[in-house]
Amino acid sequence: MHRVEHVMGFPVSLRIDDEHVPEGLADAVFAWLRDVDERFSPFKADSEVSRLDRGEIGLGEVSADLAEVLDLCEEYRLASGGAFDARLPGRGLDPCAVVKGWSVQRAAELLTGAGVRRFCLNAGGDVVVGGGPWRVGVRHPEHADQVCTVLELTDGAVATSALYERGEHIVDGRTGRPASGLLSVTVVAPTLTEADTAATAAFAMGAEGVAWVAGREGCEVYAVDVGRRVRRTAGLPVA
């Protein structure tokens, strides 16, 4: 089974290679992602995030899901020394850097909870897989038609933060300026929650972010700095 929809501003592709796919499962996966977009997008005026940011609801009134997301935002803010921050000065609350990986990981858990064994869920290039091996290409940060390396995963996730899709959209919360020092950073981790958020935090930290994310339990990293030097951990699952 293979299905693609545009959700949260990017294409989401779901592939299930099991012989029997539970009826309605793909519908449930994409319904969950659309629901997350409605509730947590800072670009939708009636979302829970926007209402919290305007003070219409308090922290004690938010849903359990949003409370979990905000806790993750604070965890990574502290862990990165403030480089990763969902509340940048002069901007509204924006937890998108956590929401994407967290929500897609939850979607993957819907699959495994329904008994699916072999699947690949790709959300705008950030991928969570089960029942591999699966081969995942890491895009070259400067040449869209080339890959830097190919990874092989059985169960786990891989996410990349870079300049090539949205320009200087990642800000170093310590300075309020666009992050510098890296062209791209790819993180392999047990969950997409960790891989995606850690990749964003590492990119925000700049060159020092490579060692930071490499030191996190369960994380492997492949990074290209502004000098075009490749930095990678020994345990990176290269195909």
Results as ranks from 00 to 15, higher is better:
residue 164 Y to F: 08
residue 135 R to P: 00
residue 141 P to L: 02
residue 95 P to Q: 14
residue 133 P to L: 05
residue 149 T to S: 03
residue 94 D to W: 11
residue 166 R to L: 03
residue 155 D to W: 10
residue 171 V to D: 07
residue 136 V to S: 05
residue 161 S to D: 00
residue 151 L to A: 01
residue 146 Q to H: 13
residue 158 V to Y: 00
residue 162 A to K: 01
residue 124 G to T: 02
residue 144 A to V: 09
residue 168 E to D: 15
residue 121 L to W: 02
residue 174 R to L: 04
residue 104 V to Y: 07
residue 127 V to I: 12
residue 117 R to S: 14
residue 88 L to M: 09
residue 183 L to R: 15
residue 96 C to A: 13
residue 86 A to G: 09
residue 119 F to V: 12
residue 136 V to L: 10
residue 180 S to G: 14
residue 132 G to P: 06
residue 147 V to D: 11
residue 108 A to N: 13
residue 120 C to L: 15
residue 131 G to T: 05
residue 169 H to T: 04
residue 178 P to W: 11
residue 119 F to K: 12
residue 144 A to S: 11
residue 176 G to C: 10
residue 101 G to E: 08
residue 127 V to P: 00
residue 108 A to Y: 09
residue 110 L to D: 09
residue 92 G to D: 03
residue 129 V to N: 08
residue 120 C to F: 07
residue 147 V to H: 13
residue 86 A to C: 14
residue 161 S to N: 04
residue 167 G to A: 05
residue 95 P to I: 08
residue 98 V to R: 14
residue 178 P to N: 06
residue 172 D to T: 12
residue 106 R to T: 12
residue 141 P to M: 04
residue 106 R to C: 09
residue 93 L to Q: 14
residue 151 L to M: 04
residue 105 Q to I: 08
residue 91 R to H: 14
residue 113 G to Y: 01
residue 167 G to Q: 05
residue 123 A to I: 02
residue 157 A to G: 09
residue 132 G to Y: 04
residue 98 V to P: 06
residue 165 E to L: 12
residue 155 D to A: 13
residue 114 A to Y: 11
residue 195 A to I: 05
residue 135 R to F: 06
residue 93 L to T: 10
residue 111 L to C: 12
residue 114 A to L: 12
residue 193 T to K: 09
residue 117 R to T: 15
residue 159 A to L: 01
residue 133 P to A: 07
residue 167 G to M: 06
residue 180 S to C: 10
residue 119 F to L: 13
residue 193 T to L: 07
residue 128 V to G: 06
residue 173 G to C: 02
residue 160 T to K: 05
residue 159 A to H: 00
residue 92 G to R: 15
residue 191 T to K: 03
residue 83 A to D: 01
residue 113 G to N: 06
residue 136 V to P: 01
residue 122 N to Q: 07
residue 134 W to C: 06
residue 180 S to E: 13
residue 173 G to R: 07
residue 156 G to A: 12
residue 160 T to D: 01
residue 127 V to M: 05
residue 149 T to K: 07
residue 149 T to R: 13
residue 131 G to H: 06
residue 150 V to F: 10
residue 179 A to L: 05
residue 175 T to H: 10
residue 174 R to C: 10
residue 195 A to Y: 03
residue 192 L to Q: 01
residue 117 R to A: 14
residue 151 L to F: 02
residue 188 V to A: 03
residue 106 R to N: 09
residue 143 H to I: 11
residue 128 V to P: 04
residue 174 R to W: 03
residue 172 D to Y: 10
residue 105 Q to K: 14
residue 179 A to P: 01
residue 175 T to S: 14
residue 135 R to K: 13
residue 92 G to P: 04
residue 153 L to M: 09
residue 164 Y to W: 07
residue 93 L to E: 11
residue 111 L to T: 09
residue 114 A to E: 11
residue 113 G to C: 08
residue 116 V to Q: 08
residue 135 R to D: 08
residue 188 V to K: 00
residue 100 K to S: 10
residue 181 G to H: 01
residue 101 G to H: 05
residue 104 V to W: 05
residue 185 V to R: 02
residue 83 A to M: 07
residue 141 P to C: 07
residue 168 E to K: 15
residue 86 A to F: 06
